[in-house]
Amino acid sequence: MILRLLKELKGFNLDIYKDKCIKRRIAIRIRKTCCSSAAEYGELLMRDKAEPDHLLKVLTIHVSHFFRNPSTFQKLKDEIFPYLFSLCERETRESLKLWSVGCAGGEEPYSACLLLKEYFAETISRREVAILGSDVNPEILETAKKGIYREERLLEVPREIRDRWFTPEEGRFQLAPEIMAMVTFRQSDLCDIDIFPESDLILCRNVLIYLERSHQEKILCGFADALRAGGILVLGKAETLVGESRKRFRTVCPVERIYRVI
């Protein structure tokens, strides 16, 4: 019932998420509002204008920091980016398109930017690189656009990169505008498989774990369609290709969960 209400109130579709997970998240909110039952909370949800927003905020989980899973970024730097650039060269594409799915506070797309700026400065001066970050939550995208981070989010950023691209500000760190300008953010839902943007590299880490299997499969197939020939998909370390989608990708690195579209 609460899910239906949410859908009506905010147009937020929870069908694709895992049941247990959502129930747990809603239970947090029910306890916090001191409601005795789900029904009572449902009433509160209808009565109180602010509550649906609170609930949405609790429902989506944003755990991230810069260069999360450093080994994955190492792999991106050593193999994937050189490969993608050479692919672009061969196919004479004008730009390299990156898509970070479920980007939360922008840590992932910005990390990719930093990587490109640090190690591929020469290449990206010659070739346009378009980086798109998308998330379902518009609020978190606003914070992403600001580019201000607490120190604990930068723990895995190498010292010299932090000094070069961040300025400390009242115990927080402001990302350089030059980096921020490289990323565009867009609010989007993973249900809309038809409007997946064309990409060369899709980073979709620790997003699918929250979704139901059947939807995972659809979305992965959607990624396969959205990727240009030879495009790369990177999943979270506990995620894997499901069902039919297994036939659409070839494994590049099983440890880092990097796959190439067939």
Partner: peptide, 8 residues
Amino acid sequence: EQVSAATE
């Protein structure tokens, strides 16, 4: 995945 989501 479930565990991973939970730990997340």
